[in-house]
Design a protein around this nucleic acid. Structure first.
Lengths: 254, 254
DNA sequence: TATACACCTTTACGTAGCGTGAAGGTAAAG
DNA sequence: CTTTACCTTCACGCTACGTAAAGGTGTATA
């Protein structure tokens, strides 16, 4: 497939000026120039552009991109694997930022307090990137432990009363879910009540609630067939229904 | 708490030049200037800086940030809610990009083909942002359906053989997990074998495997006490052990 | 008390990655 | 034959700082 500058620009979501600039700095040359002096791009250029955009998304300057792609040791596969890793790291930063903003909302409502350090969690991307080679191991070690601690903390501190309350919630969820499935409306009041009960229930086990994690757990109910079976045994279609109700409840859908 | 320029810079992960520039353009003025002409920042400035960084992260230019924050209708709470929404949208874009790079890897291995359109999925942030108000509803509607389809697709297409294979895998996981827990080493060969079996098992239900989702599911086994119970009934501590083994297997830990 | 050293200041020039005209040639449709 | 939608090069402008240069300040130590 061949593209004129505008067609490719629209396909890739960049400006035509960008292509002229990339041509100028010898980053991405057109496949050929037609008789009227128009730039014509081909399949190779499409793939190269995709690579460039990946690199750019990850914050490399164009000189570095050029160097990476023209290097004699350039390996497309390894490059793509690198992109994947970096993108995943970026998502972790984003998740931190989301946690940060949610904490800040809670703080603005007077529900919690935040240290000045906490206020900037997730913003220090550069410093993390720079120190990643030096301290990467320790950071991950620490992060990993933190996760482990977080998961186990709540369970240990539960009183008998808490335990009873949790049991009651479980039962209530199951019975109300049966009814709710029959309404067929995950966005309906009964389904939303179930979703809220479910939130209360997991709040006993998580030390910090987030809508994303809640939605994620609900999705897992559908992704793991044993869990689907657990809910569907109670009522066919209940797992998917609960997932949808939670998605609505957390604002992740519709 | 009061900060000199360098202290705050280190706390927030930005340069001192940035503060001088923000002072210059009247975006963020220090609380006061001390007798030696030093810039001194206070609590209010810390909070304002956090807001500025949120806006900046979301791609606004500093003029727009200034306008937003000095507007007479400025509402911190609404602003924060807006940040949250935008950050979540950003994460969706990132997820698309991750899907894209994973597809591209598959393509580079000759396992699939990609249309030129698919090659740029996730890059078109601007266009999406611009059209978000107009087409937001339809996009989310479509996205939601896609998710639903994705979760159900595989289950329907399973043959008898597949079903038997899945059952066998389940059993193998449980028995090998019992043994593995006794070794006490989530990074050991037996535990890693279990993690790999678990990957095979979920691959029957997911139409695209990702390490993150795998790790996420394992984490959910610990987060949801009923699931913890399911594995721990087989062998105490099995859920946490499996989670740790999968974290190592997926490279998310250590 | 000197001096080293880590801070802070202002002034000023540099730059990456385009955006945005201006001035003009070309292709395809009506 | 004209309109409209493309395409070209040339060139200046802009944002958000980075990076010296030249010099004042605070304080711990020789």
């Amino acid at each position: 497939m061949e593209y004129t500058i505008n067609k490719l620009a629209k396909l890739a979501g960049v400006s035509t000026r960008t292509f002229r600039y990339y041509d100028e700095i010898d980053l991405l040359k057109p496949a050929r120039i037609n008789s009227s002096g128009y730039r014509i791009y081909g399949e190779k250029q499409v793939d190269d552009l995709q690579q460039i955009l990946f690199y750019r998304e990850l914050g490399l300057n164009l000189d570095a991109v050029k160097e990476a792609m023209t290097s004699p040791t350039y390996d497309l596969y390894k490059s793509l694997e690198g992109h994947r890793e970096k993108l995943l790291a970026k998502r972790e930063h984003l998740d931190q930022l989301i946690t940060n903003v949610e904490k800040t909302i809670a703080k603005s409502e007077g529900r919690i307090t935040m240290t000045d350090q906490e206020k900037f969690e997730g913003f220090k991307q550069k410093m993390i990137d720079e120190n990643e080679e030096r301290y990467g191991f320790e950071i991950r070690e620490k992060y990993g432990d933190e996760q482990v601690d977080k998961s186990n903390r709540k369970l240990k501190g539960m009183t008998k009363e808490d335990h009873d309350r949790v049991e009651a919630l479980s039962q209530e969820i199951l019975t109300k879910l049966r009814e709710a499935v029959d309404t067929g409306e995950p966005a309906g009041p009964l389904a939303q009540e179930v979703a809220d009960l479910h939130r209360q229930w997991i709040s006993f086990y998580w030390d910090s609630y987030s809508k994303e994690a809640h939605a994620g757990l609900a999705q897992m109910y559908v992704d793991d067939p044993r869990f689907t079976a657990y809910y569907d045994k109670n009522k066919p279609g209940a797992a998917v229904f609960l997932r949808d109700a939670v998605l609505v409840y957390t604002g992740m859908k519709k």
